[in-house]
Structures are given as C-alpha cells and as structure tokens.
Nucleic acid binder design. Structure first.
Lengths: 161, 161
DNA sequence: CTCGATGCAAAATGTTTGCACGCAG
DNA sequence: CTGCGTGCAAACATTTTGCATCGAG
C-alpha cells in the first residue's frame, strides 16, 4: 500500500509467463506472443494494435485466435482492458503498475501520473460511497496543459458547467 | 462556481431546442425527437438505445439518420458522448449537470455522485500537471459496496495492486 | 425555390462463431 | 493419445456512405 516498486518490462513478462503456465490449460506460442506483445509495450494497446503487431511477428496467426486469446487471457486474470476517453479499448498486463492516465481530448495525447495524486479521491469514494475505485486501470479525460492555451470550446448552452 | 442549480428535464429540453434552432441549419422533426429522447432520459443512453427508442416513436426514421444526427448534434455542441467503464458509449445532453459516475465492474451497476467529491482531485491535477479534467462526463470504474462484500477476484499475479 | 436532411440499401469495420485439423501436455 | 487451441471462412453487430428524394427556411 506504499511501496510501488517499479516492475521492469522483462520481469513482468516472466511473471506473466509463469502465471500463464499456471492458469492456462495449454501454453501455446500464440498465447506467449500475445502476452509478450502486451507486456512488452509497457503500456496499452488497442485490440486492433495487438492484432496488427502479433500478425506482424507471426503472420500465420489469425485475428480470431487473437481475439479469442485476449478474452482467454483476461479470463485467466493475466490482462485487462479499459476504455481511455473516447478512444478504443486498451489492453494491458494486470500488474502493470499503479498509475493514472490523463487523456487529452483535444490533442489525443496521454500522460501517466502517480497514484498519490488521486489517493484522496480514492479515500473519499470509499469512505462516502463505499465504492472501491479501480484506479490502476483507469483514465481521466480532459484537456492538457498545451491544449488549454489554445482555442477551447466552452459550454454553448450557458449552463454553469 | 458553487451553485449547481438542478435543471429539470423539461427546462433542459427547451434550452436544447432553442440551441438547436440557433445552431443547426435546419430543424427537422427527427432532430427534435432525438434531442427530446436524450434530454428526456435525464441520464445517458447508448447509441443503440437511442436508435431503438427513436424508431419506436417514429418508425419511419432510419438508423443512419439517427447516427448522422448524433454526430451532427454533438458537432453543434448540444450533446456529448462518453464511455462508462467497459460498456458502450453513452450520449447525454451537454448541460446534463455536473456529476461523476461510478461504474461497478462486477454487477454492472452505476451510481452518480456529486462533484464535490472530486473537487480536490480536480484542483491537484490542474495544479500539479496543468491538466484540466473534464469531470462532468466521466466515469470511474471499480467495485461497489455490495459487490465488495461478495467474492472479488484479487490480483492473481501477486503484484501489490 | 434551394440546399441541407432523410430514407434506403450497400459497404466498411470490428468482433465472434462453427468446424475440422494440429499440437501441447 | 486426448482434447484444447488454431486457422479459415462465414456470420454478426454496429456504424458509415452514396444517391435520389423530400421538405425546412
């Protein structure tokens, strides 16, 4: 609850492989590759990007296998997927590390911030509403510093936001 | 900056209609209906639900018209769409009122909370990262009170969450 | 009367499924 | 060997687009 030891992409990859062997009935090259692509990205990939990347490295793999495994791996508890802002869903390794994503709706850029920033929110949500937020795999949509300076559309209806 | 005066569904509907007349080149019955459905729901509707509901009330409307208008209306600044947790995108009136959504990943339920709860987060994000979160149209994914008591899958990889 | 909006149907996109074969265990 | 996982292709759900017609202004 306080020591966020950073996990290297390599270590994570090994841990995931171990977990795969442990939880999956069969460990196939395809599954290994998919897992490797996801953990190796050190971030998030859309299903589409995964299909592209995996197909690139192993052209014989069919999209259906990838989709099926994305679900299977998520079922095994090795990966998870989230929605970032308005974009497509993103897959990531489960123990990806605790951080929050800020997605800029104007420029589309994303940045990661430390979990400390939202610790108080976490506390009050749990305290007031009994809701335990899953803040590791979670994105906040808004406007980044750079875009805030530019032309931003204000509420056109005059509501006090 | 502190008076969140609640807007009745009726008032909102009228305001939206006025804005529609103001910003759209043409005001058609279809647009009016779509707008009415969205503002009347007093909440959020998936594109699919809107298609269903609108078609119900006006069977001659084709889905393409609805999709086109969802985009058009969003372009006019009358509505917006967000992604709630893992579910489908939801459309809502722009001046829907400031609140945050808590989406339970276990039971799929959602609850709305007041904006005050996340005011401090808002402040620190802006302060520390220069990022202006769009917290009105935004969802937090996690586990609700009820489901927290039940069987919850913990991190299967042993990472410290 | 004009030109934006609509309805229809076909297309594009992204994901899922049935089935027979192949390979991990 | 056994049966889970794979590749292929077809099915699907959802959203987009071309085009002729319609109707709001």
């Amino acid at each position: 609850m306080m020591g966020e030891k950073p996990v290297s992409s390599d270590t994570r990859s090994q841990r995931l492989l171990a977990a795969l062997k442990d939880r999956a009935p069969r460990v196939t090259p395809q599954r290994r590759l998919i897992l490797e692509v996801i953990s190796g990205s050190d971030g998030h990939l859309s299903a589409d990007a995964i299909v592209t990347e995996v197909t690139l490295r192993m052209p014989t793999v069919s999209p259906s296998t990838i989709y099926r495994n994305l679900q299977a791996l998520e079922g095994f508890g090795l990966i998870s997927h989230i929605h970032m802002g308005h974009g497509p869903a993103q897959y990531q390794a489960i123990d990806h590390g605790a951080h929050l994503h800020l997605v800029c709706g104007t420029c589309g850029g994303t940045q990661e911030i430390d979990r400390d920033t939202i610790r108080s929110l976490e506390a009050s949500l749990l305290d007031v509403h009994g809701f335990k937020p899953n803040l590791e795999h979670f994105a906040i949509y808004g406007t980044c510093k750079g875009c805030a300076s530019g032309p931003v559309r204000s509420n056109p209806l005059g509501g006090e936001s």
